[in-house]
Each structure stands twice: as structure tokens, then as C-alpha cells.
Amino acid sequence: MRVYGVVGWKNAGKTGLMERLVTEICGRGFTVSTVKHAHHVFDVDQPGKDSYRHRSAGATEVLLSSRKRFALMHELRDEAEPALDALLAKLQPVDLVLIEGYKRDAHAKVEAFRAETGNGLLAAHDPTIKAVASGVPLDLDRPVFDLNDTEKIADFILSQVGLA
């Protein structure tokens, strides 16, 4: 499966870029799935709902299904967080998986960068970052795209993964 990442510091524009890339690449006829890493506890169901009650009662996995979609929730309890490769293995085959986060993993990435966040460039110390999508002009040893030029960023990613 082809994978490509979008990384960056908080408020750098990662999620907006991911959303635009999914729309752009799907619009070109490719199938895309996404993986999003969260650094905090999150919930996908609501207290009081049946699935929440099943999980709270101790179920390791709860699969919620309807005519339109299904969601599989897995409680790690005392297990370690799964590696990215283990999570990717759970996905159905698609043309491209876009990964938001997992900046320390070895897959190729584009960095979303906004100078106003006050954070430095991750790309300065990370050779897995193959390009930067920036809100300001930068002089780097790799391609720099305007953060809002989704079409050119998509062209670059698709070329990198062999889908151009």
C-alpha cells in the first residue's frame, strides 16, 4: 500500500491540508484512506449510547454497524499503542493512505508550516520530509509549496508514490 504523511507542529495547517488533499486526490479518481494520530485521549462514541456502554462494561472491541457505515473501536486497556504498520494492516487496500502525524516514523512526508506558530521547521532535521507546504517563502534543499496550493502538493505526492 502506498503511504504518504503530512506532519507539522500544532496549528501549522495539517488537518486543513489533509482535507484538501483527500478531496483533490479522490477527485482525480484515486481511492484514499487516512490515518490520524492523536496525542490525547479521544472518544468516537457518546456516553449513554449502547456502544459506549459495551466498551465501558469491559469489551475489548465494539463494532458498530449500520446501513451506511461501520466503526470498530478497540480499547487498548493495558496494551501498548500499536505501531503504524500494524494499524495500516487493518485498512482495506486503496491507492493511497495519507497519514496525519506519526512524524517520527520512516515514511515520506510533507511538512505543513506556518511561521506564526513560532515553531521551527521539522524538515531541518528530518530527511523523511521530502517537501514543505508553507505559508511563507522558504529557502530549503527540497521543494517548497504554498500551503494553499493543494493541486501542486497533490501532484508532488502522487509523483512520489508512483501514481502520477
Results as ranks from 00 to 15, higher is better:
2 R>F: 04
3 V>P: 01
4 Y>H: 11
5 G>T: 00
8 G>Q: 06
8 G>I: 01
8 G>M: 07
9 W>G: 11
10 K>A: 09
15 T>N: 05
16 G>R: 10
17 L>K: 03
18 M>D: 00
19 E>M: 09
20 R>L: 07
25 I>W: 02
25 I>Y: 03
29 G>E: 05
29 G>H: 06
33 S>Q: 10
35 V>L: 13
37 H>W: 04
40 H>S: 10
41 V>S: 14
42 F>V: 14
43 D>W: 03
45 D>Y: 12
46 Q>V: 13
48 G>D: 08
48 G>F: 09
49 K>R: 15
52 Y>L: 03
54 H>R: 02
54 H>P: 04
55 R>F: 13
58 G>E: 07
59 A>C: 11
61 E>S: 14
63 L>D: 04
65 S>Q: 11
68 K>F: 11
69 R>Q: 13
70 F>I: 06
70 F>A: 14
70 F>T: 11
71 A>T: 15
71 A>M: 13
72 L>C: 12
72 L>G: 09
74 H>T: 15
74 H>R: 13
75 E>T: 09
77 R>M: 12
77 R>Y: 10
78 D>F: 08
78 D>H: 14
79 E>S: 13
80 A>F: 07
81 E>W: 09
85 D>C: 06
90 K>W: 01
94 V>R: 12
97 V>L: 05
97 V>T: 15
101 G>A: 00
103 K>C: 01
103 K>E: 04
107 H>M: 13
111 E>R: 01
116 E>Q: 13
122 L>G: 06
122 L>M: 13
123 A>W: 04
123 A>S: 14
125 H>S: 14
128 T>V: 08
131 A>Q: 02
133 A>W: 00
135 G>S: 14
135 G>C: 06
135 G>I: 00
138 L>I: 09
138 L>S: 00
139 D>V: 14
140 L>Q: 05
144 V>A: 10
145 F>C: 00
146 D>C: 10
148 N>K: 12
149 D>E: 13
151 E>M: 10
153 I>P: 00
155 D>T: 06
156 F>M: 07
159 S>G: 15
162 G>M: 11
